[in-house]
Simulated assay, not measured.
Amino acid sequence: MPVALITGANGGLGRAIAESLATEHGYHVVIGSRNAAEGEAVAVLLQQRGFSASNIQIDLLSDESIREAVKSVEAAHGELHVLVNNAGVHLEITETDLSTRQLLNQTFQVNTFGTTVLTEACLPLLLRADTPRIVFVSSRNGSISQSLDKDWPMYGVQHPAYKASKAALNMLAVRYVEKLEAVGGMVNMMVGFHPDARSPEVAAKKVVEMATLGKGGPTGTFIDANGPIPW
């Protein structure tokens, strides 16, 4: 049975992705979440419905937590077929008294640094699998071309920490395109999942599609539900 690890899977988009992979595609889903109790609750509900699921606690701010989580996946499964990097923060959508440096640091620590540390730690397990896939849940806000487009509805919205963290993540994702292509793996960056725009269940469909690609599928793409968008 193929194994998928989804971060931030205790609710919202991450949970919808995990439920779809388990119930519609026959994956064992590993519910990754910072809140272990919430992650366990999602895994138990799937198990009670007859699907294969487990949970692990992952704090993207802690290298030790990431190491222990990956060790747990290795001990239980030996390999990893799919990694969905869904967890992230957007501190600028709420009022905050953080300084500019604090805002940048806290945003990058989760969205960019923690996600990359986890992906790097999972790489050996992914390389053991047949046709490994990584999906980075990124953002249209990480597109420089889009951010300079005066016709874009979000043009001029001042969320510099979030935008920069996602732009950096997109570039770091390229490393894994190169790492996985030698074994026929695929890495894609997905955007367009703002909760006001579509439900988690609808938004999850394209992520799941990219997480279940067969051999020879697209890789290195920056896309939304309608196809590629400019970087």
Rank of each mutant, 00 (worst) to 15 (best):
L5E: 00
G8Y: 01
A9N: 06
N10G: 12
G11W: 09
R15I: 04
L21I: 12
A22C: 09
A22K: 01
A22L: 04
A22E: 03
H25Q: 08
H28V: 15
V30F: 06
R34T: 04
E40I: 09
V44R: 13
V44T: 14
L46I: 04
L46R: 00
I56A: 02
L61N: 12
L61I: 08
I66S: 08
E68I: 08
A69V: 03
G78K: 12
V84I: 13
V84T: 08
H90Y: 15
H90W: 15
E92I: 05
I93L: 13
Q102C: 07
L103F: 03
N111L: 06
F113M: 05
F113Y: 11
T115S: 13
L118D: 02
L118Y: 01
L126N: 02
A129R: 01
D130Y: 10
R133V: 15
V135G: 05
R140K: 14
I144F: 13
K150T: 15
D151V: 08
G156M: 02
G156E: 02
P160F: 07
Y162C: 06
A164Y: 11
L169E: 07
N170R: 09
A173L: 05
E181K: 15
A182N: 05
V183E: 05
G184Q: 02
G185K: 00
M186P: 01
N188P: 10
M189Q: 11
G192M: 01
H194Q: 10
A197R: 12
P200I: 08
P200M: 05
A203H: 02
K205N: 06
E209C: 06
M210T: 04
G214K: 10
T219P: 03
G220V: 07
I223H: 14
D224A: 06
A225H: 04
N226V: 01
N226K: 12
W231I: 09
